[in-house]
Design a protein around this nucleic acid. Structure first.
Lengths: 163, 163
DNA sequence: CCTGAAAACAGACCCCC
DNA sequence: GGGGGTCTGTTTTCAGG
């Protein structure tokens, strides 16, 4: 379900990703248009779900969340019931920031943010007591080299290179 | 560098994370305060860098970014020069959404968003031609079970459980 | 540090092109 | 579908308790 988006839409999205606190007028100026068209397009893209939540990004370290783990999960259970329980467990835990089901011999990867290693252990113990997991590898982040929510919005020209 | 944040600040941050488009009045109402104090606290937390970028979250699938890979990187090179080159390469590539330096036998993990597997291969070929990498494992995401930017803001009560 | 008012500003919706 | 203006509500500032 790839949306029909033109160059102006992409410019608007880029501007909004960059700084959502900009005024309509400011955005209109940088994308080379005026308030009404920009406003209409934003409204439509919101309705279409292309534009989602408007949020602020907080400094995890400053808030005492000093440890970040990537957790590689292997399971031997592949029934729907088990998966449901596992998914619900992940959804309900706010320290799980990301969870993906994978192709290949590792079944899931999680990204978990906690205050420290002890808090990770509490999370881990709670998780394995809730759902049966075959094998877990935790990768501890020493340094966040890059972390962005800005999606690469390919231009019209770049799209030509795709298949 | 953990910031001095009180309960009211935490409530404000929670409200802002949840929906940054809320009016000051609305936020003041839900946190049980009034406009000026809320505004002052937001300004201070912005200045302190606790509150960072204000942004919108876009739907990657709708924008044609249908493939997500986690890339596990092992290197045999550990000199500063190599690391600088690698970091710069990651920073300059918009498809790299996250990059962490890890503890343990895997040196780095990347999160990469691209239109499809071919685009990932182009990224991979370009990366290994730019910097020497010993071993790469790509984990392909089949399903994004959870993805949130909302940090768990522990309450005053919960903080007591920490060390 | 909070309350309340006042001034500067931006968003939502109009009609016209 | 875009351009420009207007009304309404919101942000930001400031005097006073």
């Amino acid at each position: 379900m790839v949306a029909q988006i033109d160059t102006l839409d992409r410019k608007i999205l880029a501007a909004l990703q960059e700084d959502a606190s900009q005024s309509l007028e400011e955005i209109a100026r940088v994308v080379g248009s005026s308030k009404t068209p920009v406003w209409t397009r934003i409204r439509k893209m919101r309705e279409a779900g292309i534009i989602g939540r408007q949020t602020v990004l907080l400094d995890a370290e400053a808030l005492g969340l000093e440890a970040c783990f990537f957790v590689l999960v292997r399971t031997s259970e592949h029934e729907a019931g088990w998966q449901d329980t596992f998914l619900r467990a992940l959804q309900s835990r706010p320290e799980v920031l990301e969870a993906h089901r994978l192709a290949g011999d590792i079944d899931y990867i999680l990204k978990v943010r906690v205050p420290n290693a002890r808090a990770y252990d509490r999370f881990y113990q709670a998780l394995i007591s809730e759902v049966r997991i075959h094998n877990v590898t935790a990768l501890l982040s020493m340094e966040e080299i890059k972390s962005t929510t800005l999606l690469p919005l390919e231009t019209e020209a770049e799209r030509g290179r795709g298949p």
